[in-house]
Design a protein around this nucleic acid. Structure first.
Lengths: 83, 83
DNA sequence: ATGTTATATGCTCTAAATCGCATAAAGGGT
DNA sequence: ACCCTTTATGCGATTTAGAGCATATAACAT
């Protein structure tokens, strides 16, 4: 299942959902990834200044892949935008 | 057309390809995005410390979307392999 | 070869991310 | 209400990205 993340906030939501789906707390994920719990909290909240390396570290720990797609298809409305 | 970017280097390659496909130089893309040519060079080369916001700025300028996919099949990637 | 453009590299400086630790706030269960 | 866990926030110290400018290197012509 593939989902678009058009903003750091949406990306944070997806990371949070993937973490919870694996039954992990932020602290546990911090232990797995070597990042700090506080940082994971900020990233999940949508911190746009996060380093790309931190994203990749979390993706690896959560078994996520980052995909790039040319934006040729119609703009789908993101659920996250509503909230 | 969707492509995986499992490392900052792969992501840089995709960004570079998208830029050239649009017939843009790094300097022109810098003008469009507000980033500097030197930074774009580093990002395309695979700079892992790039800020997430810079990636999103480039994606917007190049009409790219960032997708997240759960790595259901395929071998798990070691963190060391990413960089 | 020369010239011209494109891309990469090196430097200082400012701003900002992350660390590390503490603690506050929020959530869940009994 | 209470307790316990999870998540968010604040702050000083450290590390690093990005700006800004110069310049080197590469590529690609004529």
């Amino acid at each position: 299942m593939t989902q678009v993340a058009r903003s750091p906030k949406q990306l944070g939501n997806l990371i949070q959902r993937a973490r919870r789906q694996k039954g992990l707390t932020q602290t546990e994920l911090a232990g797995l990834s070597g990042l700090r719990q506080e940082l994971i909290s900020k990233i999940e909240g949508g911190h746009d200044g996060t380093k790309l390396s931190s994203i990749y570290i979390l993706f690896a720990a959560l078994g996520l892949d980052l995909l790039v797609d040319s934006r040729s298809h119609g703009a789908a409305v993101e659920i996250e935008d509503i909230f």
